[in-house]
C-alpha cells in the first residue's frame, strides 16, 4: 500500500498529464461530471460526491461518429472515424461507477466486440476514490461491494484526512505510481486509518435492498401487469434515469446525409423509457408505460444476471436522486409481490 499527501496530488496529476488526458470531477460546466482537469481545481480532493453525469460518458460517447461514407457513382466508400482512442485517466471515479464500467464491458465484448467502446476502455486508466459522504440515495452495500471497494479500477484512493492511502489494484496502476514524487509506502497507522474510513463510509450507506429476495421474486413479476401499472403510474417517461445510469448502455444509430448521398454515421444514447425506442413500422411492443418500466427493472435485475451472472445496477442512486418524480427503484424492488399473479390477472 502506498500513500500520498493531498498537497502532492496536483503534481502527480501534472505528471500523468504527460501521457494521458486527465479527467476529474468538476461542476464548472454547470453540472457535475468528469471534466478535463484544468491544472487548478482541487476541490475534489476534499469533497468528492458522485457526479450527476456518470463517467460512462467517457467511454460511451453521447455523440459518436462511427464512420464517414462517400457516394461515388453507384457505390459507397467507408472511412472509419476517429482512429486510435484517446488515452485518458479518470481521477476520482467512485466504486459504483467503476463496477458499472466493468458491467458494461461485458456487453460490449460479448458476441460482438465493439471497438468504439473497447478502444476507449483499453486506453483508459481508472483511479478510484472511496466515498466519504455517500448520498442518501446510495445503496451500493446491498450489491456485494461498498463505497470503498478496491475493484474494477487500476488503483484505489482512500481519504485519511490530509492524505490518501493508495491500493495498487492492477499492474498498470503499479507502474503509474512507480517512482512518482510524493508517493510513499503507507505505514501501519495509515492503513489502520484507511480501514476505519472505509468502515465509516460503509456505515453511512443506510438504504438497503434484499438482493436474494428480489432475485427470487423478480421472475415471477414478469406477467404481473397490475403491479407494473401501479408502480409506473407516476413515471413521466423521460430519459433521466437511463441516461444517467452508469450501467445503461443503449444507443441509437443515425445517418446524417448530404444531398450528394455522402455523409456520416453516428450513434448516440437511447433510452428504453421512450415509447419511440421500440416503435416499429407495424407495432410497438412497449407502447404502454408499464411495459417500459418493467423492461428497465427486469433488464437490470433479471435479464442481465441471467446473461452475465451479475446485477446491472450498482446502487449509485442516480435514478432516484435525479428522477423528477422521485420514482425509487429500491421501493419498487421492495414491493415486488411474493408470488406470481393468478392467471386471470395476467395481461
Amino acid at each position: 500500500m502506498k500513500k500520498i499527501k493531498k498537497q502532492d496530488v496536483p503534481a502527480l496529476l501534472v505528471k500523468w498529464q504527460q501521457d494521458f488526458t486527465v479527467f476529474a470531477p468538476s461542476k464548472k460546466s454547470g453540472v457535475s461530471r468528469m471534466e478535463v482537469w484544468d491544472g487548478q481545481d482541487t476541490a475534489f480532493l476534499d469533497r468528492n460526491r458522485n457526479t450527476v453525469i456518470p463517467p460512462k460518458a467517457n467511454f460511451l460517447l453521447n455523440i459518436e461518429k462511427m464512420f464517414d461514407f462517400r457516394k461515388e457513382g453507384g457505390s459507397y466508400t467507408l472511412e472509419p472515424a476517429g482512429g486510435e482512442a484517446p488515452r485518458q485517466l479518470l481521477f476520482g471515479i467512485h466504486p459504483c461507477d467503476a463496477r458499472a464500467t466493468a458491467i458494461i464491458d461485458m456487453v460490449f465484448k460479448d458476441a460482438y466486440e465493439d471497438n468504439y467502446y473497447l478502444g476507449r476502455r483499453r486506453n483508459s486508466v481508472l483511479v478510484g476514490m472511496g466515498c466519504t459522504s455517500p448520498y442518501d440515495s446510495c445503496f451500493c452495500t446491498s450489491l456485494g461491494f461498498g463505497p470503498a471497494e478496491a475493484a474494477d479500477v487500476d488503483m484505489m484512493l482512500t481519504d485519511i484526512g490530509d492524505a490518501f492511502v493508495i491500493e495498487e489494484v492492477t499492474d498498470k496502476g503499479k507502474e503509474l505510481l512507480a517512482g512518482a514524487e510524493g508517493v510513499t509506502e503507507a505505514t501501519a497507522d495509515d492503513t489502520k486509518k484507511a480501514d476505519a474510513a472505509k468502515a465509516a463510509a460503509a456505515a453511512k450507506v443506510t438504504r438497503k435492498i434484499n438482493v436474494e429476495e428480489i432475485r427470487k421474486r423478480i421472475p415471477l413479476s414478469f406477467d404481473d401487469k397490475k403491479f407494473w401499472e401501479k408502480v409506473s403510474a407516476k413515471c413521466v417517461s423521460c430519459g433521466i434515469c437511463t441516461f444517467l445510469c452508469p450501467t445503461c448502455y443503449c444507443f441509437d444509430i443515425n445517418d446524417e446525409m448530404l444531398k450528394s448521398g455522402s455523409g456520416a454515421r453516428y450513434r448516440n444514447w437511447d433510452c428504453c423509457s421512450f415509447p419511440l425506442y421500440t416503435k416499429m413500422p407495424a407495432e410497438n411492443p412497449r407502447a404502454e408505460k408499464w411495459r417500459r418500466v418493467r423492461q428497465k427493472v427486469h433488464h437490470k435485475y433479471a435479464f442481465y444476471p441471467e446473461l452475465f451472472n451479475i446485477i446491472a445496477c450498482t446502487g449509485c442512486g442516480r435514478c432516484i436522486r435525479q428522477c423528477p418524480v422521485n420514482w425509487d427503484i429500491t421501493q419498487i424492488l421492495a414491493s415486488l409481490p411474493a408470488g406470481a399473479p393468478a392467471a386471470a390477472e395476467k395481461k
Binding site: S29, G30, V31, I53, N62, V236, S237, C238, G239, I240, F243, W269, C271, F274, L276, P324, V325
Partner: peptide, 27 residues
C-alpha cells in the same frame, strides 16, 4: 453554452403539462 450541456433526455417536455402532443416535432 447552456444547451451544450443538454443530453436530450426530454424531461423538460415530459413533465410539462402544456406539452401534450402525441408526437413531438422533435421526433
Amino acid at each position: 453554452s447552456e444547451f451544450s450541456r443538454c443530453i436530450r433526455c426530454y424531461a423538460c417536455r415530459q413533465v410539462c403539462p402544456a406539452c401534450f402532443c402525441n408526437r413531438c416535432f422533435s421526433e
